[in-house]
Every structure is written in structure tokens, then in C-alpha cells.
Simulated assay, not measured.
Amino acid sequence: MLDMDLTTAFNTTLTFWSAILTVIVSFSLGISISVTYMKTHHKGYYSQNFSLTLILIPSVIAVIILLVGSNVARAFSLAGAFSIARFRSTAGDPKDIAYVFFSMAAGLACGVGLFGYAALFTVLLCVFMFILCKINFGAKKTCSKILKIVIPENMNYQGAFDDILKKYTTNYQLCKVKTTDLGTLFELVYTITMENDKNEKEFIDELRCRNGNLNIVLAMDAAPTDF
């Protein structure tokens, strides 16, 4: 008798068709969020697995909200079940974390039955993300790089490239000098800041003419210790 009462109480708050509608709407919103993520990601470099995850998150969150409802006992039971699992992932792009919260918010709105609000804020935020991506909001005009130049041992490296560096960079600093090839060559490592519109090929060509066409490395997003 008690089981029948619980079943009846549950059916009054959750019906089969409302559950199907919730899953369909949340899944559709997840696809919209995932497509926005792929279209706005830098130069199209994105993870396929993460894109699929963004599709599933709203549906999973919506189903959880449906199952929990206002029942405190079910909420604590669900929390205990999730505490068993440990989730491990590498640190990613901060924008990826924002998209995860975006998907969770859409799933929460669908789970409580606010489909109109869920669709409204999903569309608005997707449009805003497209606009910000189109205007390249927050892009830096300069970028920091690592420059490694190999010179012969008979060349005085102090100030040898200052005129070229002043021409192509806004800031530079010699941070490491070491010998190589049994002392027959020197390796100079600079940290430099270049404007994005500077011609890197012309910069390297002028350095090559100065160092006798020995090796030159211009690296992005690296530290001097990497060399």
C-alpha cells in the first residue's frame, strides 16, 4: 500500500511525456551550445569529445532535476551516489569551463520546466558569443615569444642584434647565454614582445644575415628554460 502511494505521488509530479519533452528540449539546446563552441573556438582547434559532452550535459542535468524534484530524500541519495565517482580531467581553456556552466544552466532550466526561458537565454548567449568572436574581443595587439640565436664563438654577442630587435620588437631581454658544439658556438636566448602586424620572416632574415646563417628559433608560448 505504501509503495502504491509513493508511485502515485511520483507520477503526479513526473509524467512520461513531460520527461520526453524535457530530454528533447535540453538535448536541442545542448546541440546549439556545442555548435556555438565549435564555431567560436580559436581557428577551429577544439576537442570533439568536449563538443559531444556539451550536448549531453543539459540532458543529464535536466534528468537529474526531474528525478530529484522537491524530494529531500532523493536529493541526498543522489548526492551520495555521485560522491562515489571521482572525476579527473586536465586543466583546460577557461572558456571551456564557461561553456560547461552554460550547458548546466540550460539543463537546470529545462529540468524545472522553464523551457521558454532556457531557450531564450541560450539563444541570446550564443548570439553574444558569435558577436564577441566576430569582433575578436579581448585580443592582444602584441605577443610574447622566445628567440634563440646561434652565433660563432668569435662574435661579440653583447649588443650584436640590438638594432634589429629595436626595429621589430617593442621589448626584448637577453635571458640566457650558453656555449655549444664544444665551445665553437654560442646560443643566445631572448624574451621578446612583438606586435602582431610585424613580418616575422623579414625579422628572421635580418637576423640570419647578422649571425652568418646559423640556426634561429622563434618560439611562441615557451619559457627560456625550455631551451
Rank of each mutant, 00 (worst) to 15 (best):
residue 69 G to L: 09
residue 75 A to C: 06
residue 91 A to Y: 12
residue 83 S to K: 10
residue 62 A to L: 06
residue 108 L to W: 02
residue 58 P to R: 09
residue 65 I to D: 00
residue 82 F to C: 01
residue 106 A to Y: 00
residue 119 A to D: 11
residue 56 L to N: 11
residue 71 N to P: 02
residue 64 I to C: 13
residue 97 I to L: 13
residue 104 M to T: 11
residue 83 S to M: 03
residue 95 K to S: 00
residue 107 G to E: 06
residue 106 A to I: 04
residue 62 A to F: 00
residue 63 V to Y: 06
residue 98 A to F: 09
residue 101 F to V: 13
residue 72 V to F: 12
residue 98 A to T: 11
residue 51 S to N: 14
residue 76 F to Q: 07
residue 114 L to F: 15
residue 65 I to R: 07
residue 117 Y to E: 15
residue 123 V to C: 15
residue 67 L to T: 00
residue 80 G to E: 03
residue 59 S to Y: 03
residue 61 I to E: 00
residue 90 T to D: 01
residue 108 L to P: 00
residue 61 I to S: 09
residue 72 V to P: 05
residue 55 I to A: 14
residue 91 A to W: 10
residue 118 A to D: 05
residue 72 V to D: 05
residue 60 V to S: 03
residue 64 I to Y: 10
residue 102 F to A: 01
residue 113 G to Y: 09
residue 59 S to K: 07
residue 62 A to G: 03
residue 95 K to A: 02
residue 84 I to M: 03
residue 108 L to I: 12
residue 81 A to R: 01
residue 88 R to W: 05
residue 110 C to F: 05
residue 83 S to R: 06
residue 83 S to Q: 08
residue 119 A to P: 12
residue 68 V to Q: 01
residue 110 C to R: 04
residue 86 R to Q: 07
residue 97 I to N: 12
residue 68 V to F: 01
residue 53 T to V: 15
